[in-house]
Design a protein around this nucleic acid. Sequence first.
DNA 1: GTCAGTGCAAACTTTTTGCAACTAC
DNA 2: GTAGTTGCAAAAAGTTTGCACTGAC
Lengths: 163, 163
Amino acid sequence: MDNSALQEKVKSVFVLYLKGKGGRCTPERLEVLKTVVDIPSHFKLDTLMELLVQKNFRVSRTTLYNTIYELEDAGIVSACRIGHDMYYEMSFERPRHHHQVCTRCGRITEFQNIELDEAIAKAKYRRFTMADYTLSVYGICTSCVTQMRREEKKKKNKNINKQ
Amino acid sequence: MDNSALQEKVKSVFVLYLKGKGGRCTPERLEVLKTVVDIPSHFKLDTLMELLVQKNFRVSRTTLYNTIYELEDAGIVSACRIGHDMYYEMSFERPRHHHQVCTRCGRITEFQNIELDEAIAKAKYRRFTMADYTLSVYGICTSCVTQMRREEKKKKNKNINKQ
DNA sequence: GTCAGTGCAAACTTTTTGCAACTAC
DNA sequence: GTAGTTGCAAAAAGTTTGCACTGAC
């Protein structure tokens, strides 16, 4: 599906959702949605704000929060806490994925793993019916490992020179 | 291991950690640690504050944050975001577990699942070395399901009486 | 015309920071 | 004695709320 087709589809879902609850299709909501759909992965509310400013579309923080919550409710956007920050991302028709957080550089990347998803879906829960889940994995990304090795080498060389 | 043995063990770990980095064993830190060890599961910083107040032990918020961060660093406490709130829990010598969050009543319970842990440990990650992870499962707990059914029944009965 | 939605400012919550006084070592 | 810690108060960051005005229906 190309971007404009996705845009249309998501928009119609949101419009239907709004109609269903007696909500209104304001230009703010539609523009926020459009911007969100164009973001390829997770984003902070601040980033979304900036993107809208870049488009010369002024929205208040209040409306941004309001709209994001509506989008969550409509099942188009999902929220997740990573570390100390709140991130959002379009979840509509995106395959499920998880987040890898590098505890050194802070970069957050995504990975998919169907076996894992199945294991979580099949797991037995205590007096509980699972509907959704978030998995965040913490560790070190390979580029940080490389960098750390390089730094260590430098340190060792310095020590040798000192002796 | 009974509670006082655990208390001793955890304390010695913390003291060693503090010595190792040239930190100091202040009465505040030791009392916070003792209180944390006595909490059976996850807690908010505010709850910890209240428990200390109940003990007539005055600590400032600043010190509480400071100490919790030290405890995290020492590997005694781990932090996790659930929904909009930050929780802490003693992780020292506790088996790994995950959180089930009921999206209706907000109650957070724990569950263990070794197969899941193994699946996560064995999973292939993209340019990344996994060190730790958090899994939060969202859904409805059985007591909420029961309550919802009861309410639905009541509603139906009302409608029948109206007709 | 009506009522939901918007934007602003202010409030609120949680966490961080600067600094003087204190105290563990 | 001295450096790490504490507690306060203020600042900062993120989110929510009250309210008058606006505009989608």
